[in-house]
Amino acid sequence: MITHLVFDGVADGPMGVALDIVGAAERVVRAGLVALPEGRLAPRQRVVSVNGEPVRTASGRTFAVDGALGLRGMGPGDVLVLPGLGMATTPEIAAALERPDIVRGVEWVARAATKGVLVAASCSATFVLAASRVLDGRRATTTWWLGPAFAQRFPRVTLSSERMVVESGGVFTAGSAFAHADLMLAILAHTVSPSVAHMVTRYLVLDERASQARYMVLSHLRGSDPAIRKLESFVTSNIERQISIHEMARATATSPRTLARRVAKGLGITPQQFAQRLRIAQAVHLLETTQQSIDDIAARVGYADPAAFRRVFRRETGETPRARRMRSMLREAEAREAPARLRGVKAPPAPARAARAG
């Protein structure tokens, strides 16, 4: 059983997407489109609140639930998921963690984890999960612009805010807003079957994304530290070559130590990591919008050694450059075909080509 635990302020879109994804998975299995491993069943789901009462969503709508959260009968094989809350700032989240309903929810999450229930959260709800101490000593991700605040509040958690979904010791976390879709697909792959998760992505035309890196900086920086904005401008103007920390410091009128401190405070990473992510974001753009070779793209974003570029790209995005390009091509092709949603339709044919390692 997949149980969605919702609080007042739950984000409308991610919650709806989660219900659609699990519902599609159930229909895929019951239609016989995917054979499950022995002992696995079609997923079922329910939505609960801490007291069984409807909640108000982030947009002010009333959201009905199936009942109150109860742990009787829950154990290994069950899943407790916390959809993101419609909160975008650190003060909002700090205030939410003091709310009686969320304090009670934190206690329920901790108890569920001790019973062997798989627990998961996305976006700002990762703060609720971390408050339960379930993430202590584990790796996790959160929505990228809240990474520094998360790291400061929960120092016992190893944060990988560039990742879209992180699984660590059977606990799942995901990044911002519609990363909840990625979270649900990862949970389906883990608890039901990878084939089911893949089939759902194809029927619902979902984009499988391994990393938040390409989304992490440009729009958010407009309100950030001016030194970070200067650094972004300097790196993008010199995207074709590697830049030393001393050059970065001169360009931002700071010392290397001061620049490192300000970037760490603003983004939770080092200046070198920031520059690297800007390069990879540009590389993703070129892979998706041009036919240039991977070696040429590597050179255009400052990597004289294509092998080094491939290693960095895979570390930052979770996939190879070639796989990224092929996935983009397949996604565009499937979108053009506009496959019908699950209403007795046949499974779509497998892609003619598979991505090779890049």
Score class of each variant (00 low, 15 high):
Met1Thr: 04
His4Ala: 08
His4Phe: 12
Val6Thr: 07
Pro14Val: 08
Arg27Glu: 00
Pro37Phe: 07
Gly39Glu: 00
Ala42Pro: 15
Val47Glu: 05
Val48Arg: 14
Gly52Pro: 12
Gly60Ile: 07
Ala68Thr: 12
Leu69Gly: 06
Leu85Ser: 10
Met87Tyr: 13
Ala88Trp: 01
Thr89Ile: 07
Thr89Gly: 15
Ala96Lys: 14
Arg104Lys: 12
Val106Ala: 10
Arg111Tyr: 00
Leu118Asp: 02
Ala121Pro: 14
Ala125Ser: 15
Thr126Val: 14
Ala131Tyr: 08
Ser132Arg: 10
Ala140Leu: 03
Thr141Trp: 11
Thr142Pro: 06
Leu146Arg: 01
Gln152Tyr: 01
Arg153Gly: 03
Ser161Ile: 05
Met164Gly: 14
Val165Asn: 13
Val165Asp: 08
Ser168Phe: 06
Thr173Phe: 11
Met184Gln: 04
Leu185Thr: 01
Leu185Tyr: 01
Leu206Lys: 14
Asp207Phe: 10
Ala210Ile: 03
Gln212Ser: 15
Gln212Val: 13
Val217Met: 11
Arg222Gly: 12
Ser224Ile: 02
Pro226Gln: 07
Ala227Cys: 06
Ala227Gln: 05
Met248His: 05
Ala249Gly: 09
Arg250Ile: 10
Leu259His: 04
Leu259Asn: 02
Val263Lys: 03
Lys265Tyr: 04
Gly266Ile: 00
Gln272Pro: 08
Ala275Gln: 03
Gln276Ser: 13
Ile280Thr: 13
Ile280Ser: 11
His285Gly: 13
Ala298Lys: 01
Pro306Ser: 11
Arg311Phe: 00
Thr317Asp: 00
Glu319His: 07
Thr320Ile: 00
Arg327Asp: 03
Arg327Met: 05
Ser328Val: 02
Glu334Leu: 15
Lys346Ala: 13
Ala350Gln: 10
Ala352Trp: 01
Gly358Ile: 02
